[in-house]
Design a protein around this nucleic acid. Structure first.
Length: 274
DNA sequence: TGCCAGGCCTTCC
DNA sequence: GGAAGGCATGGC
């Protein structure tokens, strides 16, 4: 068991739309994280964490919830660039950018296109249940996200049976590209954001939006920013700004290397407030 | 029932 | 190079 105390809003970080596979049982959250299952619950000013595996637990938690980064300072710098974002930042106080696994993020966000959150979670859970390793935690069954090797064995129909819909052929193609080393997820760590966007968008099923989510959520490239319907609504309301091109120009010129975080605050404010 | 979702691909100009 | 239509699935 581990206790942490931080400027950390557990609930909004988990539920704000960054990750799809979590169980919320009366504000006790259970998630599958790499090789283990963990549960987190806020109690007084502490977060109580239990895990199916104790090894390196603190390091894994701090890395996953990005708890070593100075968000106060980043938020201050964003507000200095643009005072109008203050409300969105105040609403999102304690929200961390979850540091997700690149492979799982790739699969999850390909499934996310033209899809709803419950359906995305359903598909990811089926993939894990059918092809991932079973873990027993607090007398319940959970399934780790499958390895690259395991998912490269699947056929298009196998994917379709996991309810991914028309994205089956994209997933199959992506797994082939990984198998024959055309797509090397490790190499992205050494690329700048512009190059890595272009690199990912070479593969069928990955467009601008999906590539941006992968780079922001799995590679912590904070200068990359997914513009979606919620962000567009925010931009229209607050800045009377329309058109994807205008929004992108404004965002990068204003927030620069923190554009991804600024966008995440706007997304969270617009989607989850009121 | 019919519409649509944190898009992307294909097929047209 | 830009616009329009189609797409599996499930929830309302």
């Amino acid at each position: 068991m581990l206790k942490i105390k931080n400027n950390f809003d557990l609930k909004s970080t988990i539920t704000c739309g960054q990750i799809f596979r979590y169980i919320d049982d009366n504000d006790e959250f259970t998630i599958v994280l790499k090789d283990r299952v963990i549960s987190l619950k806020e109690e007084k000013d502490n977060i109580i964490i239990e895990s199916s595996k104790e090894e390196n637990l603190k390091e894994i938690i701090y890395d996953y919830f990005d708890l070593n980064r100075d968000y106060d300072n980043i938020e201050k710098m964003i507000i200095e660039k643009d005072k109008k974002i203050t409300d969105a930042i105040n609403f999102s106080r304690g929200l961390k950018m979850i540091h997700q696994d690149p492979f799982e993020t790739l699969i999850a966000y390909i499934i996310s296109q033209n899809n709803r959150v419950p359906s995305i979670a359903h598909a990811l859970n089926l993939i894990s249940k059918n092809y991932g390793e079973k873990v027993i935690f607090k007398n319940k069954e959970y399934y780790l996200f499958p390895s690259i090797e395991k998912l490269s064995e699947l056929t298009i129909d196998d994917f379709r049976n996991c309810k991914v819909g028309f994205r089956d052929k994209y997933l199959y193609g992506i797994m082939n590209s990984i198998k024959n080393s055309e797509l090397d997820l490790e190499s992205i760590y050494n690329m700048n954001s512009e190059d890595s966007l272009k690199y990912l968008m070479n593969f069928k099923g990955i467009g601008m939006k999906v590539a941006s989510c992968i780079l922001l959520f799995a590679y912590q490239k904070f200068d990359v920013y997914p513009v979606d319907t919620w962000v567009k609504k925010y931009m229209k309301d607050i800045y009377n700004l329309e058109g994807e091109k205008n929004i992108k120009e404004f965002t990068y010129n204003t927030y620069k290397e923190y554009s991804g975080l600024a966008i995440q605050y706007m997304f969270n404010y617009k989607r989850n407030s009121k």
